[in-house]
Design a protein around this nucleic acid. Structure first.
Lengths: 268, 268
DNA sequence: GAGTGGTCTAGACCACGCG
DNA sequence: GCGTGGTCTAGACCACTCA
């Protein structure tokens, strides 16, 4: 095959460009580069669980053969997946499905850092599960989780103690259908990030999250749990976590103490 | 030139790999790919002001010729610069030096968004300059700005009113040496982002920033300016802004009201 | 239609990890 | 020494912009 043309060999599926038959409106894009199609194909395999977290995906050469494109095209597809943290490249070894079960990258989604000058070396968080029960989603929760009002959800309340001081009080809501069998014991026993547990025990991979941060005062119960007065301002962090295809899988409301820690963010 | 070798033609400057003369310690990396060297070269030109914000940089072909490498190598260098928002690609037109003076991308560094359901259409912020004076850097400020204790700085205090309610109270510190001639009048008169003013009037390009967010209570003066009670929790946002080479050029302490707005962040 | 960025290929060699 | 990702080249064509 000498060179490339908009009907690239017989690569992948439909070339969304110019199908001969259906006169579908094709609203706007109606063209996607080959490497984007490859990216989608890999994404589908990821989603379908063809490769599990921490496993290697096929080499670039193999994928190139499978999809009938050049290695460079596969490379560009994987580049984007790597940029989105869906996959991790390791030179000389291969490309691996991203996971919250990794050394080093503990607490990927946690933006809270100890004030420099804080005494303790911090160490791992101590978790106290205060509640873990079945509940029904109200309208708002149902909307953000893509459920029906009244659908079953799991509700977890827990306290994280960092360096000896209770620092984070969290309420977590999860679609019960995705997290069958979740209980307080699992949450207590499990080591490492909770998202790692979700991944390992329920096959739910959280990929991305959006947070809304506000300053609030705690109510009496919250203040007591965090061992502060009700006049202590706290960070309220409302998080929605997503898996593939922007499907929401978790709602989490956190209260952070910021007298010993701060919430860090990088702008660019 | 048939193919590539670690002494790539006579491209760019020193191939940091194996200089024949100096037995410098070369701590660790001692190798950088060609496209990284090109990236640095372009970065130097950017820094030296060879091309100004909103201007186009030379085409990929021209740069390839200039540095004696292939177009693909230049492309990869520019790809990274674009990913870091230092440069913006526009198909069919060229590659342009990034700027805060652009339509659409108003307030690139501002993470505060109006609560959905807020009445007003928000519109542009109304700025009130409360103070704009010369001062001397204390030890901490000097350290974070890379100055000497006692060096001259400009200090600005201002209030931003969003949708009718005073929402942001900011103190800004700038190295006086970089911002000669800054005064309250300029700050009041100028339209658009303040970083656009820095860029246009002082040639200071802010590229990146780091924020530390905490929940605090205002003192009496702050509360009055923001028209809240001293018991209203506020977001304290401590920002350090950087230009090329991670050189700090601004320290900014903001107090945000979060009863009508929220601080948004995306995790991945 | 000329020019610019964007996509794609094919082939070569390099750096790294591991047996 | 082989396999994997990483770099580099050269050349072709596509999509977009603007005169």
């Amino acid at each position: 095959m000498p060179d490339f043309s908009p009907e690239p060999s017989d690569a992948i599926v439909a070339d969304s460009g110019a199908a001969v038959s259906a006169p579908l409106p094709q609203p706007t894009p109606s063209f996607s580069p080959l490497y984007q199609q490859i990216k989608q194909a890999i994404l589908h395999s990821l989603e379908a669980g063809e490769w599990k977290p921490l496993e290697a995906i096929p080499s670039e050469m193999e994928l190139a053969k499978r999809y009938n494109v050049s290695q460079g095209t596969v490379r560009k597809a994987i580049d984007e997946l790597a940029a989105e943290n869906l996959v991790v490249r390791r030179q000389g070894k291969g490309t691996f499905v991203a996971s919250h079960n990794e050394r080093h990258v503990e607490y990927r989604f946690l933006r809270l850092h100890p004030d420099s000058g804080t005494v303790s070396t911090e160490g791992p968080a101590q978790r106290t599960i205060l509640e873990c029960k079945r509940a029904r989603a109200n309208a708002e929760l149902a909307r953000t989780l893509g459920l029906q009002s009244g659908d079953a959800v799991m509700q977890v309340r827990r306290l994280l103690t960092l360096g000896g001081t209770p620092t984070i009080l969290e309420d977590i809501w999860l679609p019960a259908q995705l997290f069958k069998g979740l209980n307080a014991d699992m949450l207590t026993t499990h080591q490492g990030p909770t998202y790692a547990l979700f991944e390992k025990e329920f096959g739910v991979r959280t990929i991305r999250a959006e947070e809304q941060v506000r300053a609030v005062l705690p109510d009496a119960a919250q203040a007591e749990l965090l061992e502060v007065t009700p006049h202590t301002p706290l960070l309220q962090v409302d998080r929605v976590s997503y898996t593939y295809n922007d499907a929401p899988v978790e709602v989490r409301k956190g209260l952070y103490r910021t007298d010993t820690h701060y919430y860090k963010n990088t702008l660019s």
